[in-house]
Each structure stands twice: as structure tokens, then as C-alpha cells.
Simulated scan of single mutants.
Amino acid sequence: MSKDPLVSTAWLYERLSAPDIQIVDASWYMPSEARDPQREYERAHIPGAVFFDIDEIADTDSGLPHMLPSPAKFASRVQAMGLGDGSTIVVYDGGGLRAARTWWAFRAMGHENVVVLDGGLSKWIAEGRPVEDLPPSPQERHFTPRYSADLVRDKAQVLRAIESGREQLVDARPAARFTAEAPEPREGLRGGHMPGARNVPSSTVIAPDGTLLPADKLKAVFEAAGVELDKPIVTTCGSGVTASILALALARLGRPRVAVYDGSWTEWGGLPDTPVVTGPA
């Protein structure tokens, strides 16, 4: 089993003032949730945390939501936030472990020393730990991007995976969207899933208290969905956020190099010619 990709609230609390720990609020919400992550961050965040906007630190010309930016843009943005080489980056969010997207993004840019706060801000506050509303004053820090292509998949690579069967596709969307029984939240997308994909809704890997399930329970969830944990895996979802939660869960199971399909269903389901299957897997 490799190093766990999550840290506890107690672990972070003991290291709040450590100079090599950099804390990042990477909260993100669907429009239907009617929550403003930037405003919530300004009202209360873990002391010293900076805000990472996945919709701005992105390829804003792609036409798809929060796609990975170029390494140069990523480095420029995080350097200005005081995030860089030699630091341990701890990412958290306001609920649902969606900070996994930013965890994956840092690793896709070559920064492996990044972890997710298990339970996020909700658990932190529930335990009576400190928050502040002070704007940060980060000192710029050098960040060396080293793009890790093995952690990223595009449409052409997913098509080849379907044709060859060499990589398993694991979809993090809710079951009703996977089967096309429920509509997609984004307009203009077909319902269903990619041929051969397995369905592991991201909610099924998260415990009631918002923490990631322990390894034995995670293993049971993936195996029940027909995922072979010893074979290559690519995760997908609506727009690459909850797919990253599955990648995080698989990292806890000793599979740290799982790839994420960045465009996910927003790209795939929005095209007229990509193969789509409806009904259960």
C-alpha cells in the first residue's frame, strides 16, 4: 500500500504554523447548489489558506468547464499564491471531497507532495478548530511544472481504450445519470455512458461524516461494481471533478497513477458521434 493521499484534521492542526505546509481551499459547487465558494472562503477559511478557483486556473479557451490549463499558466497562478517547490500542499473543500480535483491537478503538473484534508472544512469546523476571514498575503514561490501525461486522458485516448479494452473506464456519476434514467444537469448532453464503463458513484466512496471510506470498504465498493483493481483504470464523470474523487480513493488502495478523463461526459455526451450506451452496465 502506498502513502495515503489524505491527512486528518488533527494532523493539519498540529502543523498549522509549519513553514513547509501550504493550505489551499479548493471548494467548488454545481450551479444547482447555489453556493459561492469564493464568498464562503472570504467569510471563513482555515488560517493561512489561499483560494484555488478551478474555473479560472483552467484552459478557459477550451469551451469545456475547468479543463487543465497549460503548465505555464498553472505555474504562474500557483506561484503567485505562494505555492511551489519543496512545500507540502494540503487541499480541502467545503464538502464532498471535491478538492480531489485540485489534488489531481497538482499531480498532473508534477507536484506529488500534495494531500487532501479528510472531511474538509465541515469536519474542521465541527471539531471546533480555528478559522479566519483574513485575506492571505502570500509570498511568491517558484513552482516547476512537470506535466504527467500518464494521469490525464483525452477523448481520442478514451476511444482507443474502448476499442482495445486495455483500460477500464469507471464512471463516478450517479447511477440514474449513468443509465440515462435521469437527465444530465448540463443542457445539450446525451444520456448514458461509454461502452464497457463501470459505475461507481462518488457518493458511495464517502462516509456519512464526509471522510473517505477506509481501504477495506473502498475495495468492496469497487469490486462490487466489477472493477478489477489490478488492471489499468481511467476515471470519468460529468466534468472531471468527481472522477478525481475516485482517483483519490484508488490512490488510498495503492493505485496512485490512475488517469482522469479531463473532458468527461460534458465533452463525450455533447458530441454527436461518440459511442453511448444506456441502461445498466
Score class of each variant (00 low, 15 high):
Ser2Asp: 11
Lys3Cys: 04
Lys3Met: 09
Pro5Ser: 03
Leu6Val: 15
Val7His: 05
Val7Gly: 05
Ser8Met: 10
Ala10Met: 13
Leu12Val: 08
Tyr13Phe: 13
Leu16Ser: 11
Ala18Gln: 14
Pro19Gly: 06
Ile21His: 03
Gln22Asp: 07
Ile23Pro: 00
Val24Met: 04
Trp28Ala: 01
Ala34Thr: 14
Ala34Tyr: 03
Arg35Ile: 11
Arg35Gly: 07
Asp36Thr: 10
Arg39Met: 14
Arg39His: 14
Tyr41Asp: 02
Arg43Ser: 13
Arg43His: 13
Phe51Ala: 07
Asp53Val: 12
Asp55Gly: 13
Glu56Gly: 07
Ser70Phe: 12
Ala75Val: 05
Ser76His: 12
Gln79Arg: 15
Ala80Arg: 14
Ala80Pro: 02
Met81Thr: 06
Gly82Lys: 03
Leu83Cys: 11
Gly84Val: 08
Ser87His: 07
Asp93Ala: 11
Gly94Pro: 03
Gly94Glu: 01
Gly95Val: 10
Ala99Glu: 02
Ala100Phe: 05
Ala100Asn: 04
Trp103Val: 01
Ala105Pro: 02
Glu112Asp: 15
Asn113Phe: 04
Val116Asp: 01
Asp118Asn: 15
Asp118Met: 07
Leu121Val: 06
Trp124Met: 04
Trp124Arg: 01
Trp124Ser: 00
Gly128Ala: 09
Glu132Lys: 13
Asp133Ser: 15
Leu134Val: 13
Leu134Thr: 14
Pro136Gln: 14
Pro138Glu: 10
Glu140Cys: 12
Glu140Gly: 07
Arg141Tyr: 08
His142Glu: 14
Phe143Cys: 02
Thr144Ala: 13
Thr144Arg: 12
Tyr147Trp: 15
Arg153Cys: 08
Asp154Val: 10
Asp154Asn: 15
Lys155Tyr: 11
Gln157Asp: 10
Gln157Asn: 03
Ala161His: 01
Ile162Asn: 06
Glu163Asp: 15
Gly165Tyr: 10
Gly165Ser: 09
Gln168Leu: 09
Leu169Gly: 00
Arg173His: 08
Ala180Trp: 05
Glu181Ser: 15
Ala182Pro: 06
Pro185Tyr: 07
Gly188Tyr: 04
Gly192Met: 02
Gly192Phe: 01
Gly192Ser: 10
His193Phe: 05
Met194Trp: 03
Pro195Arg: 10
Ala197Phe: 02
Asn199Ala: 09
Val200Gln: 00
Ser202Phe: 15
Ser202Leu: 04
Ser203Trp: 05
Ser203Asp: 13
Thr204Gln: 10
Ala207Gly: 11
Asp209Ser: 12
Gly210Gln: 12
Thr211Asp: 08
Leu212Tyr: 02
Leu213Lys: 09
Leu213Gln: 13
Pro214Ile: 05
Lys217His: 05
Leu218Lys: 00
Glu223Arg: 11
Ala225Gly: 09
Ala225Ile: 11
Val227Leu: 08
Val234Met: 04
Ser239Met: 09
Ser244Val: 09
Ala251Val: 06
Pro256Asp: 06
Pro256Leu: 06
Tyr261Lys: 01
Gly263Asn: 07
Thr266Val: 13
Gly269His: 02
Gly270Ser: 11
Gly270Cys: 09
Pro272Asn: 09
Thr274Ala: 05
Val276Trp: 02
Val276Glu: 03
Val277Lys: 04
Thr278Phe: 11
Pro280Trp: 05
Ala281Thr: 11
